[in-house]
Amino acid sequence: MSTDQPPGREETVQPPVSGVRPYVLTGGRVRPLHAAPLNIAAQIRSTPQGVAEIGRLTYEHRDIVELCDHWISVAEVASHLRLHLGVVRILVADLAALGLLYVHDGNLAGGRQGAVIERVIRGLTAIR
């Protein structure tokens, strides 16, 4: 692990992901109840309803709603909670369908793509 990091950077110690068969957490489902699995870069945040209902949620749902007190990507949630990305995508879509999470799909409308790339180029050049 440590050889994976360049010198001078804080090391990220990543405990192994739980050995429990991951789909136990989703009741064996490989897709969400009501929606397509989310893009891994989609931004999510808990709704007031999600926060209010936190005590009634299962552990994994509770962890997600708690973590998402600010906008955060689906991929980051998986990493912070040490859950498989695929499982998180399903759990998050379920929570969103229940009104407990807001979801902002990070994808850009086609016409805006060029303008966004220009901004990214400018921004990256500035921090280069």
């Binding site: 990091q5 950077r9 804080e10 090391e11 990220t12 990543q14 992901v17 050995g19 068969r21 991951p22 789909y23 064996g28 489902r29 490989v30 897709r31 699995p37 991929a75 980051e76 998986a78 990493s79 912070h80 859950l83 498989h84 990305l85 695929g86 499982v87």
Partner: peptide
């Protein structure tokens, strides 16, 4: 941020896209 690493279960992703509703045999 320090680089984060997650495990993406590949059989699950395959299943989701192939429209299979059962749990694949090898989910790990």
């Amino acid at each position: 941020i320090p680089v984060l690493t997650t495990e993406a279960p590949i059989t699950e992703l395959a299943a989701a896209l192939d429209n299979v509703d059962e749990v694949p045999a090898k989910t790990t």
